[in-house]
């Protein structure tokens, strides 16, 4: 499949003797919305950290639109078009909501630091364009009326949404969402599903989603990859994943055949 936007070929990562991820392979075509699930400690976030350059893979390659990313520093990978959110929210707490998004516009800036110090006409223009873009993103995420507040003072659900807005501000092609629904109430989860679909459509994004909330994953994703102990144990449509015996075993800890029929059968 040469039309893949993000191509991950058999990446592995070991920390000393611990093999966190073993030969993880993934292909995302433009516009895909895929899920990555697995029990706690399966290596999902490690995969995200490998994709975004926080860790360098011990083996294997990652390429985005034909460009090799493995081994690059995280900021270069962001520049190449990969953005992410964090499982344990990492907003710039003491900065305002607006500034959080404006920071993420920085990597697309043309003018140098001297231009900023002289406050040249060009830098003022860029500054205004950044602010305009940041505000238009905040409007989409319903955060515009809180733009002056410190990010840390936002309610939890708003912080999650601000993280997504900030990631999109980097103008990514691939968006990695790490448990965006964690800590949200049922109503917020429903809104989040809509939001994910909407940003994917409006910004032409390709999305990879880590999520523990099966409702969100099964509803949103076209394909799902399941990790357990760093190994890919299943890959396919939500229906197939739900009835896959290995997946059930990984989550429930016993072979499907050993379980009473109701728990073993797909819902």
């Amino acid at each position: 499949m040469s039309d893949a936007l993000l191509q991950v070929d058999a990446i592995s990562k070991s920390f000393g003797g611990l093999r966190a991820v073993t030969e993880f392979t993934l292909r995302l075509a433009p516009g895909d919305l895929q899920g990555l699930i697995g029990p706690n400690g399966a290596g999902k976030t490690t995969v995200f950290n490998l994709l975004t350059g926080v860790y360098t893979p011990t083996a294997g390659t990652i390429s985005l639109a034909g460009r090799r990313l493995s081994g690059l520093r995280p900021h270069r990978i962001a520049q190449a078009g990969m953005a992410r959110t964090f499982q344990n929210i990492r907003l710039f707490g003491d900065l305002s909501v607006l500034d959080n998004v404006r920071v993420a516009c920085h990597l697309r800036v043309n003018r140098g630091v001297l231009s900023a110090i002289l406050r040249s006409g060009g830098s003022i223009g860029e500054e205004r364009a950044i602010t305009e873009r940041a505000r238009s993103l905040l409007r989409i995420f319903n955060l515009l009326d809180r733009e002056a507040e410190d990010a840390r003072s936002l309610p939890y659900g708003d912080q999650r949404r601000l993280e997504i807005a900030r990631a999109i501000a980097t103008e990514p092609r691939v968006l990695l969402l790490d448990e965006p629904a964690a800590g949200m109430n049922p109503q917020e989860k429903i809104e989040l599903r809509e939001l994910i679909r909407k940003v994917r459509r409006d910004f032409g994004l390709t999305v990879l989603l880590i999520e523990h909330d099966m409702g969100v994953v099964m509803d949103c994703c076209e394909k799902i990859t399941v990790l357990d102990h760093g190994v890919t144990i299943a890959h396919g449509t939500p229906e197939r994943i739900q009835s896959d015996s290995k997946v059930i075993e990984a989550y429930l800890g016993a072979p499907a055949s050993d379980l009473p029929p109701r728990a073993g059968g797909g819902r």
Partner: peptide, 15 residues
């Protein structure tokens, strides 16, 4: 300022 706030997040946002 983003580096002061969270270096890992700053780097991930392309700083």
């Amino acid at each position: 300022l983003s580096i002061r706030e969270d270096e890992i997040a700053a780097e991930a946002m392309g700083v």
